[in-house]
Nucleic acid binder design. Structure first.
Lengths: 220, 220
DNA sequence: TCAAAAGTGTTCATTGTACACCCATGT
DNA sequence: ACATGGGTGTACAATGAACACTTTTGA
């Protein structure tokens, strides 16, 4: 901001928050981490993880701080989505909110934190219970995730380091809410040459066992 | 922001600005509207149009206000790009800036405003003279414009209502900084069935004359 | 008559899509 | 032996990319 065009000589100051959408993948379902709202209105309804931005931190750092505190994970994948600044978006007062989404491997998540913060993993059908404009935020974030996952730019952060092609396909089916053809999916993802096939097999989910893959170093 | 996680009981407040990237297309070149900075440091260097957000307006409205004032156009195409909030992004002090880009038909622009606001249309080679993080903002906005123009989702706002296919192609060449095959381009755009061919011809740019097209009502 | 821009089709390569059966193994 | 999930290939359609000549007309 440099060549100011504003109504007042002394510009207004605002509360600025970050709201974070934490995506996780478990058991063929795409989920988001939410908190139970503690105050009226809509007490008890699920809301996103949020926190106010502080003077001495960048907004990216604020998002990292909130995410670290509430997930216990400090190296997660994080991306800014958009900023929401309508006058009445929060009934408690004017707050401008910058939304981030994060992808975590749900196995890395310490589930004891669920009680500590009174949080829970919401599956898609429940997302419409989110308060205020949080539903819209999640919609927008999901659109972004879908666009990027289509080209396999991101998404691997939702899986363990070693994963089977079945898991990867199942993740994509969860992201797009539609089922995909197994042969076409495998052909496509393998043709990208971004996966390394391991010797090791996953014997947990089938008798035959499925080969583990991991993302090639160059695409980490 | 609801379940606050912050360091202080009394959260900090911030100056929040909108910075606007106004794209225009003239004479086979993609340009942006910029202002000459009036204060040190970097006095005289080009900067984006900006303004502080006020209490009684949404951030979208703030962007509209700035754009209307500085272009004289009130129904332009506008889209939020991203928010920039590093501590030292503006040497004058901490300002969180939400960036928008707008597309205007440069013919609608009142060029007397150039003097009034000491502004100018910068072509691509000059974009790297922009102050601070404004160069990065423009890069990010251009990426978005390119993605959307590829599918002809937007871009027509940069042209007059009636335009020739040559103009449209030349616009795309300017957006992507590369030349395109005439036959393939026309085949593709016409196959989308979003254009109506008019009777009228543009006789300004060739002896033979090129048919005008306009965007079909349904895709306005 | 000629210079300058408008307009037009075909071939080939690549990519996406539909579709069904055998394999390995633990119980 | 059988149930369960793992793994594989082919044919066709759609899309994208390369490529050159004729048309119109004002000067």
């Amino acid at each position: 901001m440099t060549n100011s065009v504003h109504h007042y000589i002394h510009p207004d100051r605002f509360l600025v928050s970050v709201d974070c959408i934490v995506f996780g993948f478990h058991d063929t379902e795409l989920k988001i981490l939410t908190f139970k709202r503690k105050i009226e209105p809509q007490i008890g309804a699920p809301s996103l993880l949020g926190g106010f931005v502080c003077k001495e931190e960048s907004i990216d750092d604020a998002a990292k701080r909130v995410l670290d505190k509430l997930t216990g994970i400090d190296d997660l994948y994080m991306e800014q989505v958009a900023t929401y600044g309508d006058l009445d978006r929060d009934p408690a007062g004017r707050v401008i909110s910058i939304v981030y989404f994060a992808l975590i491997n749900i196995e890395d998540y310490d589930h004891s934190l669920l009680e500590r913060y009174d949080s829970s993993w919401l599956s898609k059908e429940e997302w419409n219970h989110l308060i205020f404009d949080h539903r819209k935020m999640v919609e927008d974030a999901l659109k972004r995730l879908r666009k990027k996952a289509a080209t396999f730019d991101i998404g691997f952060n939702l899986l363990p380091e070693k994963f089977t092609l079945t898991q990867l396909q199942s993740l994509h089916e969860a992201i797009y809410s539609e089922s995909l053809d197994k042969r076409n999916f495998r052909k496509k993802v393998l043709s990208l040459n971004i996966l390394d096939k391991l010797e090791e097999k996953d014997k947990m989910h089938s008798r035959k066992g499925a080969y583990y893959y991991k993302l090639n170093e160059n695409y980490r």
